[in-house]
Structure formats: structure tokens, C-alpha cells
């Protein structure tokens, strides 16, 4: 494989060094233990938001650190969850006296490491709440698997909780809002090609030229089935129908539609998918009032797309619209 790396073991450190140089106005980077934090952290009196997970999903989570969103992000090695000491150090560095909200995607490694960190933070006297994200409808057999995975709704929860924290809400309320986002959002993705972990040097799985992995996870773990390649409109419909049925979304619901690239899918194709998804949502009687489009939760160089629908309330919409200023998401005048 070809990749713009130096030594495989230096990938995460060097990428973070680059991020720190590129976004010095917004973030700082600590390397031992490793985490990204707001340049102005800790913000006194504000609930601090900490997330984390394996690297390889950029800009999530490090690119979502900044005013109006995360206070810190803990990157693990590529596709490997961070360790408890990273999470504890990050939480201690950003704790502004109002407690720490941990936003965790439902993967066994992430759950275990955050759970251990939570126990250590309790010993250190830092109050925490955890919001566990599991919005992936691709996983149907929750009983005999590690359960539904946390995917696109994580980005939305980080934005909305970030705004709620910035507005001065207490920890329990910010956690409640995070859980509401998870409960009101559903996602599913598909892959046209596998990704290659540059630390492993080989493709995560193999797909024939005319095959699509339907219900893909963000590390290339499979979902529902392998299906023949089809048109953008057909594939979009196949993604959206199970999402609509699962919550279920009802006629008249106001929704946010998030069309995410898994890394290698160009914006040109993303807009074609978004067009189909928004038209279909309209046909189902939904009112799409907010959109997010772009590569935000990626799987390295995987070609593919994921859709997330979030049912909005006036409260959630208000926090979505609130200013944010991070390397990846930036609108309004966040301070």
C-alpha cells in the first residue's frame, strides 16, 4: 500500500503534531498521555466534554475540540481505543469545576477503557456522567453481539451537548440532552471499498468490484449483508428505509439529516446521496430543517457513505444552531 506516512508507529503522534500547528488558535496537544484539548481549557464553571476513540476517524474526535463542542479528545492508536490514563488526564486538564461529560461510542474497547477511567475519576473526586452512543441500526442481533455501535449521532451529540454546556447547563442536564440525542437518532452506512490501516498495511476486508458492504461499521466490521452495486438513489433508499422504520420516524417529524463520507467518497457523490436522502425524507413526510454534509466520522480511506437522521425538538435545534468553533465544524460567533 502507499500512504503518506513516515514510520507506522509514529502516525498518531505526527498527525497530532500537525493538528497542533494547523489549529494553534483553537487547540493544544499533549503527547504523554496523549490528548487534544481546547487552547483555553479549563473553562471555569462550565461542564467539560471529553470524548475519544481510536484514530483513523478524523476529524472525529480531535477536530471537534473547541468552543461550543468538545473540551478534550483522546485519540488511541489507529482503530484502537484510548487508555484510561489518557482519559483521566484529559478530564483532569479540562475540568472546570462543573463535572465532566464522557461521550462514548458503544465498542467493547471504548466502553471498557472509559469505564475504568470513570472509576479513577471518581477516586480523584471529579464528577462524571457518561453518554453511551449506539445509533447504528445495521446491528440487528444485539443479544449475540456487543450491541449496536455508536456512529454518526456521536458527532451530533458532541455538538449539541457542547452548546448545552456552553449555555451553562449543569452536568445532569447536559447528560440528559446527550442521551436524548442518542435516543432520537438512527444511522446506517455502506462501503464501496475497504479501508487500509496504515499500521497493519493491509485492507480490512475484501469486496468484489460489483459488491457493496451494507451496514458497515466504522472499522470495516460488517453489518447486514453484501449486496450488488446499484445506483446512488437505490442505495440511498436502502440505507434510509431501515433508519426511518427503526425509531420510527413519523410524518411531521422535524429532522436533521447528516450525510457522512467514510473517507474516500468525494463530496460530489456525497451531494448526490444527500439529494436522494432529503427527497426521500420529504416523501415520508419529514421536515428536514437542518443538514450536515461532509467527511466527519471517517474510516481512513474507505469509500462509502453513512446517513444519520436526528429527530429535532426546539431545544435540540437551538443547541444545534448555537455557535461552534472547532477545526472541523465552525459557525456563528463562538467564544
Amino acid at each position: 500500500m502507499k500512504a503518506l506516512i513516515n514510520r507506522p508507529e509514529d502516525i498518531v503522534r505526527e498527525a497530532l503534531e500537525g493538528m497542533a500547528l494547523a489549529h494553534a488558535d483553537l487547540i493544544r496537544v499533549e503527547q504523554d498521555p496523549r490528548f487534544v484539548l481546547r487552547a483555553d481549557a479549563p473553562v471555569q464553571g462550565k461542564v467539560a466534554l471529553v470524548s475519544g476513540g481510536g484514530s483513523g476517524h478524523e476529524p472525529m474526535h480531535g477536530g471537534l475540540v473547541g468552543p461550543g463542542m468538545l473540551d478534550a479528545a483522546c485519540p488511541g492508536e489507529v482503530f484502537t481505543s484510548p487508555t484510561p490514563d489518557q482519559i483521566v488526564a484529559a478530564a483532569q486538564a479540562v475540568h472546570g469545576g462543573a463535572g465532566v461529560l464522557l461521550i462514548v461510542k458503544n465498542y467493547t474497547g471504548d466502553v471498557l477503557n472509559f469505564q475504568m477511567a470513570t472509576e479513577l475519576l471518581a477516586d480523584a473526586g471529579i464528577p462524571t456522567e457518561t453518554v453511551l452512543m449506539d445509533d447504528d441500526v445495521a446491528v440487528t442481533d444485539s443479544l449475540y453481539t456487543a450491541g449496536r455501535r455508536g456512529v454518526g449521532a456521536t458527532v451530533l451529540a458532541e455538538k449539541i451537548c457542547g452548546a448545552a454546556a456552553a449555555a451553562g447547563l449543569p452536568l445532569a442536564q447536559v447528560a440528559r440532552i446527550g442521551r436524548e440525542v442518542n435516543a432520537s437518532a438512527r444511522s446506517m452506512g455502506l462501503a464501496l471499498s475497504p479501508c487500509t490501516n496504515p499500521q497493519a498495511g493491509q485492507a480490512s476486508f475484501t469486496l468484489k468490484d460489483d459488491e457493496v458492504e451494507f451496514g458497515i461499521g466504522i472499522h470495516g466490521e460488517p453489518g447486514r449483508s453484501r449486496i450488488p452495486m446499484a445506483s446512488a438513489d437505490t442505495l440511498t433508499q436502502m440505507l434510509l428505509e431501515p433508519i426511518l422504520q427503526d425509531l420510527p420516524f413519523a410524518r411531521g417529524d422535524e429532522v436533521l439529516l447528516f450525510t457522512d463520507s467514510l473517507g474516500a467518497t468525494p463530496l460530489l457523490e456525497l451531494y448526490i446521496v444527500h439529494r436522494a436522502a432529503e427527497q426521500l425524507a420529504n416523501q415520508h413526510g419529514l421536515k428536514v430543517s437542518r443538514r450536515l454534509i461532509g467527511p466527519l466520522m471517517t474510516s481512513l480511506d474507505m469509500a462509502g457513505v453513512a446517513l444519520t437522521l436526528l429527530r429535532l425538538t426546539p431545544e435540540l435545534r437551538g443547541y444545534w444552531d448555537a455557535p461552534v468553533r472547532t477545526p472541523a465544524l465552525c459557525w456563528g460567533l463562538a467564544r
Binding site: G76, S81, P82, T83, D85, L112, Q115, M116
Partner: peptide, 12 residues
């Protein structure tokens, strides 16, 4: 191991 492995295998 908890501090350096990560993933599920580190905590386990």
C-alpha cells in the same frame, strides 16, 4: 497493560 495496550485487550 491497562496504560499502554488500549482496545478491549488492554483492560481485560
Amino acid at each position: 497493560l491497562i496504560g499502554s495496550v488500549g482496545g478491549a485487550s488492554g483492560p481485560l
